[in-house]
C-alpha cells in the first residue's frame, strides 16, 4: 500500500485495486469509509434539498391530483403550470416581484457605493475624527435591528416615508458591516501602489476609482450579493413599514397569500417557487462569493 503511494505519479500497472480516490493530501480513502460518506451525504442532501423539491412538485400538481395521498406521490402525475397562472390571478405576484427587484437593486447600488466611499475614507485618509467615524460604524453593527424596529418605524412616519419602497430600502441602504468590510479590504492593499500614483499626480478620486476600487472587487462582490439577498429575503421590516397591498414585496405578498389562502397548498407552493427561484439561480452562478461572505461576515460580525 505505502510503496505504491510513493510511486503514485507513475501510472500504476492495472491491477484490480481499490479505486484511487484520495483526500486533499493525496492520501487514499478506504472504500468502506467512502461508501459511508456518500450514504451520509445523500441522506443530508435529501433533508436539505428535498423540501424544496417537494414544494416544486406540489406546485406542478393539477387541481384533480391528490396532494394529500398516503403514501405520498413524489412526482406530479401530469405536470401543469396552472397554479402559476392562478397565483397571478389571485395576487399581483409579478408586481410584487418587480417591487422586490427594485428594492434589492437599490440596496445593492447604495451599499456598494456608500460602503466603498466610507470604507476608503476610514482606511486610507487621515483626518481628525477618523477614529470616531469608525466607532460609529462599529457601534451601529452591534445594535440588534429587531430592538430598534419600532423606532425605525416612527422615524419613517416622521419622514412621511412609511408605506413606500424608499422606506423599505433606507434603514439598510448602507450597512455598517459592509462599511467595515470595505475598510478592511482597503487596509489590506499595499500603500505603495497608491503612493506611486500620487507621485504621478493622481488626485484622491483618481486613486480611489482607478487603483483602490479595482483591487477590492472581490469584497465589493460579496457586499453586492449579500445586499441583494438581504433585501430580497427580508421579512420583518417590510412587514412593518408596508401596509398598502399594492406596494408589497414578494415576501410580504407570500405571507398575505398564505394568510388568506392557507388551505390552497398548490397556490402557496407556486408562490414560494416564484420567490425562491431567482436567488437559487444567483447562488448557482456566484457560489464562491456566497461562501466567502459567510466566512467574512462571521469573522467581522
Amino acid at each position: 500500500m505505502s510503496v505504491i503511494d510513493k510511486v503514485r505519479p507513475a501510472p500504476a500497472p492495472a491491477v484490480a485495486r481499490e479505486p484511487r480516490v484520495t483526500d486533499e493530501h493525496g492520501r487514499p480513502i478506504r472504500v468502506g469509509e467512502l461508501a459511508l460518506r456518500y450514504v451520509l451525504l445523500l441522506a443530508v442532501l435529501a433533508l436539505t434539498v428535498g423540501p424544496f423539491l417537494w414544494q416544486l412538485s406540489t406546485s406542478l400538481k393539477g387541481p384533480t391530483e391528490d396532494i394529500f395521498s398516503s403514501p405520498p406521490k413524489f412526482l406530479p402525475g401530469r405536470p401543469t403550470l396552472h397554479n402559476y397562472e392562478r397565483v397571478a390571478d389571485t395576487i399581483p405576484v409579478w408586481d410584487y416581484a418587480l417591487n422586490s427587484l427594485k428594492v434589492a437593486t437599490a440596496n445593492v447600488v447604495t451599499n456598494c457605493v456608500g460602503s466603498a466611499l466610507a470604507g476608503y475614507a476610514l482606511a486610507r485618509l487621515r483626518y481628525r475624527g477618523r477614529g470616531v467615524a469608525t466607532l460609529v460604524f462599529v457601534l451601529a453593527m452591534l445594535v440588534p435591528v429587531e430592538g430598534i424596529i419600532i423606532a425605525q418605524f416612527t422615524t419613517m412616519r416622521e419622514l412621511g416615508l412609511n408605506n413606500t419602497l424608499i422606506g423599505v430600502v433606507l434603514p439598510g441602504c448602507i450597512g455598517a458591516m459592509n462599511v467595515l468590510l470595505m475598510r478592511n479590504a482597503f487596509l489590506n492593499l499595499p500603500y505603495e501602489i497608491e503612493e506611486a500614483a500620487y507621485v504621478d499626480g493622481a488626485d484622491v478620486w483618481q486613486r480611489f476609482l482607478r487603483i483602490a476600487l479595482p483591487s477590492v472587487k472581490g469584497t465589493l462582490a460579496v457586499v453586492a450579493i449579500f445586499a441583494f439577498m438581504g433585501a430580497w429575503d427580508d421579512f420583518l421590516w417590510p412587514l412593518i413599514v408596508l401596509s398598502d397591498p399594492s406596494k408589497f414585496t414578494l415576501t410580504i405578498g407570500l405571507n398575505y397569500l398564505h394568510g388568506t389562502f392557507a388551505g390552497d397548498e398548490r397556490l402557496v407552493a407556486a408562490g414560494t417557487v416564484i420567490a425562491v427561484t431567482p436567488l437559487i439561480a444567483l447562488f448557482a452562478c456566484l457560489q464562491r462569493y456566497f461562501f466567502r461572505g459567510a466566512g467574512e461576515g462571521a469573522v467581522k460580525g
Binding site: T48, V49, F52, M229, W232, D233, D234, F235, L250, T251, L254, N255, T272, A275, V276, L279, I280, L282, F283, Q287, F290, F291, A294
Partner: peptide, 10 residues
C-alpha cells in the same frame, strides 16, 4: 447551503 439562500418566508 441552499436553505441559507432562501428567504425565511419561503
Amino acid at each position: 447551503y441552499t436553505p441559507v439562500v432562501a428567504s425565511i418566508v419561503v
